[in-house]
Design a protein around this nucleic acid. Sequence first.
DNA 1: CTGGATTTGTACGTATGTATT
DNA 2: CAATACATACGTACAAATCCA
Lengths: 94, 94
Amino acid sequence: MGGFAGLPGSTAAMPAEVSYYKRMLDDIRARIASGEWPPGRRIPPTRDLLAMYGESFGVRSASTVRRVVEVLIETGELRGHQGVGVYVAGDATE
Amino acid sequence: MGGFAGLPGSTAAMPAEVSYYKRMLDDIRARIASGEWPPGRRIPPTRDLLAMYGESFGVRSASTVRRVVEVLIETGELRGHQGVGVYVAGDATE
DNA sequence: CTGGATTTGTACGTATGTATT
DNA sequence: CAATACATACGTACAAATCCA
């Protein structure tokens, strides 16, 4: 099945590929750091993140997106609320 | 496929089950905190962790074990070295 | 030096449970 | 009750690095 073989979505001669995982992790962290997604803001649901990173990076699996979000929840950078959404941490109303 | 439905490996009437994920996370952290796995020590490979947590908790999937290790690597508690092993962080020789 | 075994790393897939709206 | 969305678990495939006979 899967594998990622040089990372699909990028052209042939591209050395030192960065994984989807790390790219998404960095991207979300950058959006938080830049203030685009401020503390307390709800981030897009998994489905929308998949659409986003599907276009920009070529990610095809929701489970890959989810693993990134899970890690950011564990590190305390995000907060998940089942049935509701995932929020940027650091807000006063926590 | 899977699902976990009340967590297999535990008897019927057991409320507020804790997930395999959290139990493994806590267990590894406890081993580190207790000094059983001191800084610099290599932890058992995924295969062995699966055998361990398969017996104690009923975990059946290597991918579940891996996710826990990935999180602990991201939090900086462990350090992974591809082809070699995963080590407890905090050692001088890092 | 070479090739197999070991082990971590990454990606995708699927099923199901639980909480909220 | 249905739809939405997060949470957890298991499974599969392959890549990459290291080790060792």
